[in-house]
Nucleic acid binder design. Structure first.
Lengths: 209, 209, 209, 209
DNA sequence: TATGAATGAGTGTTCATTCAT
DNA sequence: CATGAATGAACACTCATTCAT
């Protein structure tokens, strides 16, 4: 169900090995610091084969990133929102909790691809231009709907929805990136998630009674 | 006073030009995607001169990053805290506001170096290992003191100080990085800062009366 | 059987050409004065191919020297001693004559590699350290045995065997080096060999009767 | 009296230092493996100064080699033969002994220049072509006269003088080169010299009585 | 499909040499 | 006399890519 980014239709065993190795090396050292000869060697494959299948090194990168980006990621999103939202009784906190758990699980299982995506979006201007708008639109759209729903229920402050999304995304994104990309953790504890949720919901100011 | 990372003691005009050009190109395309020959060409300098002065390409990168990192950055920090804190009457909100304005101004003026630093910390494993602990320690230490002070004044919730810092840093860092590195803005509006502050202080949950 | 230093197992035609050209140029101008681009050009090969096969320029040198040194040279030695010694009746003079003819033939056929070896042993400190002890041990060991045999037969003076070897090696070595390396002759005449043998055996002092 | 190769007429202190350092480095690693920048650094001098004084690197090498070669060496030779020969009563053995002691002392004191000369004569085709004939002529001429004198006295075998010289030079040269250049000894013992002399005079064949 | 020899443009780096000061 | 910044050609080496097998 998850981590399916690696397998498309008909891939030979060697082709599989190439993609796996490329993902691992791109994640470890970055696309620009990984040579096709190293990929070939570690994949146990002739260097020519990479070019038979993918034409260019850049295309190999896209073949790694794009499926994850254009199919797995939105599919997953669909799932989450579909999974969580129907429960009408749920609070926004419950939603956040479910979302975070789902995402964290997903990102943990696709950590290497995620690392490649983030590193290259930051490092590679043309990939950034291509992917960032897509990412922003997709995610933002879903968030807006959900937040407006909860605002209608009176659970959230009367801040404009766009502002909430605009503040929420860097916080959630920063949290996940700092954990999975900057510090390469394997596990995010339940308590961390709870603290984050409480922070997002209530801030840090002491309320007067 | 600011943007002093570029000028050290005795630098010839050409040496200046090399560093400036290197910073610009590293910021635009990343260290790994920038060739020394391109730096030389755009700096109007013989390629050999780069190596006369910096020995290796990697050392040129370090000569760009390290002064910013090890001197300018903590110096600035010192300044902010010194500037803001004495005013005992100030609230934590005032402190945050002053800090953000100061940082935003500083990062705007050093935007390119900042972009280089962040890109390479994410992309270059060995630089990350070298700089991240240093960064974390320096920044974290100052924040802890300040937060504890305001906690003592009863302005902040009774969350453990470490937890507050741990939540605050990705939020502030994520905000600045997403603005200056991912989206390459020139200006951050007053209102954005105010929204961020209110978010940090009060979260998004509607308070019951 | 001889000059086999050039051909190892599976070498492509171009690889052959690289080694041949490298040997020739190293012999003519020395390793340090020969550029890989010149080798490539004269071998009719892309420069990159040299590094595909040999990794570094230094490794190309070693690939030229070491097989000659560690296999051909001792193999030959084996042969000579095996060929000459069984004939119990042979005198030491006969042995010397056979040895010299064999060596001269061998060195003539491998003249260029020999020139490379000698030039680099003299010029390249690290190669000297690596090869000289090996050379000394191998050669010296065989000589000692042979000389002791002939001493036992009463053909040679009662000088300590080590001293004889220690005097004989520079003489033989100096003779061959001065002919093949310093003066680049193609042929060493029978009469030269005879004079050398008579000199070694009898010296230059006139015997009184 | 000796080691005067280093000082010509008016040399500044820095110029002295350049030549000394060049000799040392050329001797250690060879001319081709020594960079002018290294010479300058180790001599404590600006790199430009080398070229102010010597024009090119090759000219620096010649300024080191030629005075030694064209003045010191023949001068010394003159001395030896003048010193030894007058004593009419002396035997050829005595002459050889005096010659060797004189040369060994001289080469020991000029070991580094000697190493440079020998290494470059073997490595540098154009220097070889220039110096070798000169060397051969000068040395050979003096030897011939001496040997003929001793032959006239009946001390030496009736081998043609040219043959004796032709055999003697590689032996003496090989002995000195193998000691001072290949093995970098500081001292040659009296006993070694004696063995060499006895070898040259009497060979190794046991004489029948 | 898969190999791996071969390419050639490009990379970081070195080095002898020049020249303004 | 002396410096050292600056040059540019050459150097060893890398790498994505091609192609005959």
């Amino acid at each position: 169900m998850i981590a399916q980014a690696k397998k498309t239709k008909k891939q030979t065993e060697k082709q599989q090995k190439i993609v796996e190795t490329a993902i691992r090396l791109f994640a470890e050292k970055g696309y620009a610091n990984t040579s096709t000869s190293e990929i070939a060697k570690q994949a146990g494959v002739a260097e020519g084969l990479i070019f038979k299948h993918y034409g260019t090194k850049e295309n190999l990168l896209r073949s790694v990133i794009l499926p994850f980006f254009k199919s797995s990621l939105p599919d997953m999103a669909e799932e989450v929102f579909a999974e969580v939202l129907p429960a009408k009784t749920t609070s926004f906190e419950e939603f956040l909790r479910a979302l975070l758990h789902n995402r964290i699980q997903f990102f943990y299982e696709n950590k290497q691809i995620l690392q490649v995506v983030i590193k290259e979006i930051i490092y590679n201007e043309s990939l950034k231009k291509e992917l960032l708008p897509y990412l922003a639109d997709t995610i933002r759209f879903r968030f807006k709907n959900t937040i407006e729903m909860f605002k209608a229920r009176g659970e959230l402050k009367d801040i404009p929805t766009d502002d909430i999304v605009y503040l929420l995304l860097p916080v959630l994104g920063g949290f996940i990136i700092s954990r999975f990309v900057i510090v390469d953790v394997d596990v995010i504890h339940e308590s961390e998630v709870e603290k984050l949720i409480e922070f997002i919901m209530g801030g840090i100011r002491k309320n007067e009674h």
